[in-house]
Design a protein around this nucleic acid. Structure first.
Lengths: 165, 165
DNA sequence: ACTAATGTATACTGATCTGTATAGATTAGA
DNA sequence: TCTAATCTATACAGATCAGTATACATTAGT
């Protein structure tokens, strides 16, 4: 369960565009220099973001990139989705089904539910974090992280354990 | 941000051992058949779990594998850690630093904080879910998932947005 | 001893991911 | 029309991941 390089760098590039201001255009050259990556690499990332509808490009001599929408309307979830796909998508049980045509546990699969639970809390967090929110000091974000709690009102074995502990 | 095949299958193998009962031994042959994967593949996964201290093995004609501890004492977090490493480890800013020696954003990096936030909620969830908890019906786990909420008492931009929305 | 069933270890192949290289298309300005 | 700056697209090479193949070590039973 790791972040891909594309997710990491792609999100950074989005943040750079946001920090450049609402009407600024950034060229691939500027983006690559700001992030310390090569120009072809930056170009590839920006292409992914453009095809995902998160940035708009203009070609030609005065061309460059800017955010397709205001930074407060772009969520981290949208960015991660465009850059790296979902943690647990619909195709999942097809990908990891071993030799069988479908998952050996397809009828009763608590592990599948666990992945859904992980996806649920990650999605909640990423959905309410916008690019605008990331335009702040690390310390400010850290305060946020320290107060995060996962709660459940459910009655599963996991919930019972959590209440007793 | 995707699960690796090793995490998926490895956790499944752990769950199989738990379901076999407290004193049962399962051979590689049995595990591979149960999960629908090849014997060499199962052997590789079990080796990782053994080196991670989650299962114990016995060699020889009557050999096999069993859990190293009772299933309620093995958390999903421990399993994922052994099988796939962390979402955001200490080596992270070294891995994704582009051409620079260290991260261009090393001084003030809100994105790093976001990854820590994601890791925090995922860890909370996986830490309080044991292998024992997974030995239940999918429906029961799903009830749990439906009630999951991520809460914060923090004051970051993201938190403010969440409170207003 | 010997045999058969088992776990252990290493090397190998194909797939996917990461980053690079190169050629082309578009536009502003002279 | 020409040139320079830019974005666009595809193909490529190395690294890592997924799964396989093969040889070896260990043990119970005979």
């Amino acid at each position: 369960m790791q972040l891909s390089a594309q997710e990491e760098f792609g999100l950074r590039c989005l943040l750079r565009l946001a920090q450049a201001g609402p009407d600024a255009m950034m060229s691939i050259h500027e983006i690559s220099r700001a992030e310390g990556i090569s120009m072809p690499h930056a170009a590839k990332l920006m292409r992914v973001l453009r095809e995902g509808g998160l940035v708009a490009s203009e070609r030609g001599q005065a061309g460059g990139y800017q955010l397709a929408r205001p930074p407060e309307e772009i969520t981290a979830k949208q960015a991660i989705h465009v850059l790296g796909g979902e943690l647990y998508g619909g195709e999942f049980c097809g990908r990891f089904s071993g030799h069988e045509d479908h998952c050996t546990n397809s009828i009763d699969c608590s592990i599948r539910s666990l992945w859904r639970a992980v996806q649920s809390v990650v999605d909640q967090l990423l959905t309410r974090t916008s690019i605008r929110d990331l335009m702040c000091a690390e310390q400010e974000m850290d305060r946020f992280v320290g107060d995060l709690v996962v709660l459940t009102g459910g009655t599963s074995p996991a919930a019972i354990r959590a209440n007793h502990g």
